[in-house]
């Protein structure tokens, strides 16, 4: 996913050059994005994504942080090659870095800080209530799972049905009782 994002972004920046007339002089610097930065974005977002898929809330927090940092670096890609510090009068305007993406990233970083604070509190509270920071199964999911195990959901769900079943096993299964379809009719739903 992250690689796709990176590709899309380099496509974006090259597209700008194709329609350069639209873009004001300040943004001309974005025409040459740094490949290193794009690779860094890809690596950060990919690592973050894999961490988010974990059960542990602290790992999820680390994943979100990495993705947030990846996006922050993405803004550096967007702002183009680095120029002089954007202070009025310190350099000619067209040699300066574009200050706006930096301002946006600063805001995003502050928001990441709040994210860390909140998620750490959440993970700590989860640990207090359950003794682990693993996110438990949803109660409703567990309920549906129980229904499935009780064969109340569908005729096609059959935990004993594996592709390698031999005819002997099938015959043995038949001795235990009639097929499941009868079961459904006799047992009835609740």
């Amino acid at each position: 996913m992250s690689a796709a994002v990176a590709t899309a972004l380099s496509a974006l920046t090259s597209a700008t050059s194709a329609h350069g007339a639209v873009v004001p002089a300040l943004i001309e610097a974005t025409l040459r994005p740094s490949l290193t930065l794009v690779v860094v974005v890809a690596a950060l977002v990919a690592t973050g994504t894999s961490l988010i898929l974990d059960r542990s809330l602290v790992r999820v927090l680390l994943g979100l942080l990495l993705i947030g940092n990846g996006v922050a670096v993405l803004f550096m890609v967007v702002s183009g090659t680095a120029g002089a510090a954007p202070f009025v009068g310190s350099a000619p305007p067209n040699e300066m870095s574009d200050p706006l993406p930096q301002a946006m990233v600063l805001t995003a970083i502050v928001i990441s800080l709040a994210t860390v604070g909140f998620l750490l509190a959440l993970a700590y509270r989860l640990w207090q209530t359950s003794g682990t920071d693993d996110v438990p199964d949803d109660a409703e999911d567990a309920h549906i799972q129980r229904l499935a195990e009780a064969r109340e959901t569908s005729d096609t769900y059959d935990p004993s049905e594996v592709p390698t079943t031999t005819s002997d096993e099938l015959a043995g299964d038949g001795l235990d009782g009639p097929p499941r379809v009868d079961d459904e009719i006799a047992g009835g739903g609740r």
Binding site: A15, V22, I27, T30, V71, F75, V78, P101, M104
Partner: peptide, 13 residues
Amino acid sequence: FLVAIAGVYAATG
């Protein structure tokens, strides 16, 4: 959303 904003800014300034 932030990625989208970055893209919008890159394309239009």
